[in-house]
Design a binder for these strands. Structure first.
Lengths: 146, 146
DNA sequence: GGAAGATTGATATACTATATAGCATTCTAA
DNA sequence: TTAGAATGCTATATAGTATATCAATCTTCC
């Protein structure tokens, strides 16, 4: 009788909440990215589009702060979406612009929202019903300490 | 009276569990990495050390599968820890080796474990006591659907 | 026992995400 | 009005991750 291997082996990392948090997040983001590929978008793109849509007159660096993306990295990020005609920059100031969605951007966002909605729903669905109401409070607490 | 800005703005992304999951995980990993810098380790290093310690005779590519790291990327990863004298490779097969901790590796791991323990504890502490027992089940469910 | 296919470690390579430093321009506050 | 802060930007570096491919070795099945 051979010793059963990998399958039955106990991974000690799975006892660590921080590790689970990271693995769960990676798996989830990858899944979302896959589902977004038909739209030619990545999760970060959709996040920015949603942000710009929800917070009109949002500035490029304000968006960066909300998304935790360096000012320097926002340039190419926004630039790419602008080149694709999804976002426009409107001077609001001698040094900053407000980001706005173009009509095409709004359409793309609407499509992406559908995907995201389905994805988020499926994600929650994985959690046993009884625990589901605790998901958001727990994740918020883990992120910001409430 | 001016309109209050960024601080009071409602970020629509914060209503999405998937987004919270990712942000929480990023924040947590960054925090752990900071706490590990005195040891010259990154979170992934510690994960591998823990794995190798807990699962003796673990093979390089088995470790990769558990950590979800491509075989190709395990080469440099393990190589770096080997070059630092923390891990050794023992031929077990014409084509594969088992990974084992060197004495120095065991010492480094012990130190790292302390850091990790403190970190994991602080992480859990952020969650209100009543919700704490649900953290692990929820994260496991989000990751693997139970 | 031998051939076909799978597995392992490795190399090369590329792409994404992210971080820092520095710069010119513009705004804000003392 | 001047000192300091903020903004967008460039350049650059690093970490993480992905794919394709290779030679050597192992496994399976006839």
């Amino acid at each position: 009788m051979t010793t059963p291997k990998a399958a039955s082996v106990t991974d000690p990392l799975e006892a660590l909440p921080g590790y689970l948090l990271r693995r769960a997040a990676l798996a989830a983001v990858n899944e979302l990215n896959e589902q977004l590929t038909p739209l030619g978008l990545r999760h970060a793109d959709v996040a920015l589009l949603m942000l710009v849509d929800a917070l009109p007159k949002l500035t490029q660096s304000e968006a960066g702060r909300l998304l935790d993306v360096q000012r320097a990295n926002m340039v190419a990020f926004v630039g790419r979406l602008q080149r694709r005609g999804l976002i426009a920059r409107e001077r609001v100031d001698g040094r900053s612009f407000a980001l706005v969605l173009t009509p095409a951007g709004k359409r793309q966002l609407a499509a992406a929202q559908q995907t995201v909605k389905t994805y988020e729903h499926a994600l929650l669905q994985r959690v046993p019903k009884a625990l589901r109401p605790m998901v958001m409070p727990i994740l918020l607490a883990l992120w910001k300490g409430e």
